[in-house]
Nucleic acid binder design. Sequence first.
DNA 1: AAGCCCCAG
DNA 2: CATTCTGGGGCTT
Length: 474
Amino acid sequence: MSDHSRTIIHLDIDCFYAQVEMVKNPALKHQPLGIQQKTIVVTSNYVARQFGIKKCMPIPEAKKLCPDLVLVKGEDLYEYRQVSQQVTDLLSQYSQFVERLGLDENFVDISELVAKRMGDADYSNLEGFVYGDVNSFDCDCGCHERLVIGSVIAQQMRNSVLEKLQLTTCAGIAHNKILAKIVGSLHKPNKQTVIFPNSAPELMISLGNVGKIPWVGHATKELLLSIDITTVAELQNCSKSQLEKVFGKEKAENILNLSFGTDESLVKLKEKPQSYGLEDSGKPLVTEQQVKEKFKEFSKRLLKLLIEDGRVPKVIKVSLRRHNPALPMGDPKETRQCLFNVDLSNETQIVAMAMSLFWKAVDKKQPFKIGVLGLGFSKLVEKPSGKRTLFEFLHGNNADRATKSDKLQESSHSFQTNCQCPPGVDKGVFAELPLEVQQELWDDYKRKEDGLKDAKKAKKSGTLLNFVVRGKMQ
DNA sequence: AAGCCCCAG
DNA sequence: CATTCTGGGGCTT
């Protein structure tokens, strides 16, 4: 018998972008509402869905189905990202193990909280729907009691999200992630569903096509098709050796397990994002100036995100897709990235780095047509404490005038003794900078070098901590 | 470390 | 107007 010791909630915010817009403007609540990105409706509220509006539906088609459809632009995800983080923060009151999936979903491992409430009479009545036949339940490991308590906690969680953030949600409660995610989507919107372990194989079969299994995407589906497997039932009945014809040993076992609703993967510790990126697929860009303008806009928006995050990036990445009149499916993106060894100093410098990466991918002498352009930052490291970074200095973050001028004086005393152009900085750009700014760049570079070493140590001990706390390696 | 692919919403 | 704008992880070099 597999392990049922955990209790996991999957929480999914109903039609997320649309709900955020309805909170901002309650007049939209009773109108059909679609969120527009470029030429499509990416999501819609439930009023609009009654008209048959679907995810990623082209605007003209949506308007035909529902002439009164109200459209709100949602290409800048900034506000959605903020509300999403508020939800995750709220859930963190229930457990340190909260894992985000996109902006509108969270897994929460509430095993500890459940253990504390076991035996409390108040927590003995199941909340919400149950998938499968409760009477056929036959496991005596205590999972039934834990999941019932889990359903009560899920209801409290959803009440809390509704009260504090005015958002309705769906929840799935199960002993693992995949089952929690699947059952949560059975009753929508604003409902919750629990599944007991013995109903797992039946739930999985009810999905029908293997593509409905979470983590089985297009590529995996095609590989399964190549060995004549299209349904979950067929997958459950196939042998591991058959799967190993097209998958590696590990992946084969993993997929077979998933088909039975078996999933040992852990809910990861809540973490800040590992990267921030922006991209735009507007009209094709054909001149250097157009590309530069795009990068400038991205830089502004990314700087805002990074200031709020508080960490600084080590890597800058440019991504692009060449405009291709060819067929719809493929998304062959090219990326160029490099170490970004200094703190972000200003927009101009970021744009300059982005452009130099751009020219690594695109031949400067040839005409070009860029369909999608993106800019991102990753390898985010904590800022050294105490001293402000150049980044904050130039953006006036938490800086009073006296401190600023003190800092300049400090710098101007020492710049001649110890200052070079740090690796990763354009030598020409560096030479143009005021001497005290050059010094600041160099100091920041040295601090970052030290910070990186610390970060590596911290990562190792973090992993060890997980092992000690959870008894398993992530 | 860089670049691509696959997964998700 | 014709699948958007993200973010995480793995594999190969």
